[in-house]
């Protein structure tokens, strides 16, 4: 089947089976390798992209259901000022260990901040708990989100501890 997708602001034509998850269209048909495969079942978030600005797990989203929605991937997120701010915060805080999950983390974080510019720890937990980091860089992810939001990055959780 032929589909025309709006990806990172450009129209891209692909010829793939209707049930092909958007993840594999991005990675193998469009050669956008930044979006990652981790579980294939919407359990790890490594494949997170934006559909009209909302975070979705592209590993379980058939291309046939994308329609005319604007797809934004990690390769395109830096063109928005918020996306750039999040990427910069990730670098300033030095979040990355292996880095495999971080594209998905950045996409989820950007969507969170777009909807909630000053998130609480609970907001961060809610928005980010679908994204696994096997290296467990979670405390720095939390700090980077707060930094991108212009908030103090000190971890005040467990301060009674």
């Amino acid at each position: 089947m032929k589909y025309t997708l709006r990806v990172n602001g450009a129209d891209r034509s692909v010829d793939v089976d209707a049930d092909t998850p958007l993840l594999w269209v991005l990675r193998d048909a469009l050669q956008l390798k930044g979006t990652k495969f981790g579980c294939g079942a919407s359990l790890c978030g490594a494949c997170t992209v934006h559909l009209d600005g909302a975070p979705v797990r592209s590993c379980v989203l058939p291309v046939s259901r994308v329609g005319s929605a604007a797809v934004t991937t990690i390769e395109g997120i830096g063109t928005s000022s918020l996306g750039k701010r999040v990427q910069d915060a990730w670098l300033d805080v030095d979040v990355v260990q292996c880095g495999y999950c971080q594209a998905g983390q950045i996409m989820a974080a950007t969507a969170l901040l777009a909807a909630t510019p000053k998130p609480t720890d609970a907001d961060i937990d809610r928005a980010m708990s679908g994204n696994l980091c096997r290296c467990a860089t979670y405390n720095r992810i939390r700090a980077a989100i707060k930094q991108a939001a212009g908030m103090p990055t000190t971890d005040t959780r467990g301060s009674s501890a």
Binding site: Q31, L32, K33, G34, T35, K36, F37, T73, I74, E75, G78, Q87, W90, L91, D94, V95, V96, Q97, G99, Y100, Q102, A103, I106
Partner: peptide, 21 residues
């Protein structure tokens, strides 16, 4: 010193084995 490849990681550059083409 920040990870030397981190700027590429956060930009989604193909660095990993799975990204080889």
């Amino acid at each position: 010193q920040r990870g030397v490849d981190s700027p590429l990681v956060v930009a989604g550059e193909p660095l990993f084995g799975i990204d080889v083409q």
